[in-house]
Computed example of a mutant assay.
Amino acid sequence: MMNNSFFSKFGPKEPKFFDYLEQVSEILLAASDMLQGALDSKTGEERMEFFRKIKEKERLGDELSHKIFEELSSSFITPFDREDIHLLADKLDDVIDRVNSCAKRIAIYNPKKNNPYEKSLGEIVKRDAECIYGAMGELASIRKNASKLKQNCKTLHDLENEADDVYETAIINLFEDEKDGIELIKMKEILNELEKTTDAAEHVGKILRTIIVKYA
């Protein structure tokens, strides 16, 4: 109860953390959209260009995360526990890093053909990013929007389960159908990184659940 009254009294005076978190989630959304382009690309030049663009988004995300951490160390009042803000920013940054890692593998490995399961996992990553972006927009009014935030958490969990199913099917088919050992390794690495990206997104949902329990 004490935490809730503290949140109500002081939260609106420190809006910048919510703004920063929403900006980070917007960067994630843009990067996940670019990832679709990388997965659709058929030439090494196109794939490398998407990687460069995503890498720039990743740098912007790092800068914002650093700004959040600096603000946390200098602000007397925060809308909720410093540890929760720090962890949420850190996990958001992890998802962007993973998207960047996916694009890097696509560009460097430059597979001879596009795997349809990679595209399916990439679409799940995009849906994760959309869900996280929506959640960050609701965070400033956490009491009012608790039910929406809970739904966001459930969606992220469901998407991670969906990604697991796609990944397992992809690996089974890959080992059955791909006869080129080098191409098999390339596709397996890309699939694995895409699946890890959905795991990272689901971790954001876990942090949000903790915050909901404390402040909603």
Results as ranks from 00 to 15, higher is better:
4 N>G: 12
14 E>M: 12
23 Q>P: 09
25 S>N: 03
27 I>E: 10
27 I>W: 08
28 L>S: 06
36 Q>V: 12
38 A>Q: 14
39 L>N: 00
43 T>F: 10
50 F>V: 03
50 F>P: 11
52 R>W: 12
52 R>E: 15
54 I>A: 03
58 E>A: 07
60 L>H: 06
62 D>W: 07
66 H>W: 13
70 E>M: 11
71 E>T: 12
72 L>I: 09
74 S>G: 07
77 I>W: 09
82 R>C: 08
83 E>L: 12
84 D>W: 07
89 A>L: 13
89 A>C: 14
95 V>D: 15
98 R>E: 13
102 C>K: 01
106 I>T: 06
110 N>A: 04
111 P>V: 00
112 K>Q: 12
114 N>L: 12
130 E>D: 01
146 A>R: 02
149 L>M: 05
160 E>Q: 07
160 E>R: 01
161 N>H: 08
168 E>Q: 13
176 E>L: 10
181 G>F: 09
183 E>C: 03
184 L>A: 00
185 I>V: 15
186 K>A: 02
188 K>D: 02
190 I>N: 04
191 L>E: 06
193 E>V: 06
195 E>C: 08
199 D>I: 11
200 A>C: 12
201 A>H: 03
203 H>I: 13
205 G>V: 01
210 T>K: 11
211 I>A: 00
212 I>E: 11
215 Y>G: 05
216 A>Q: 06
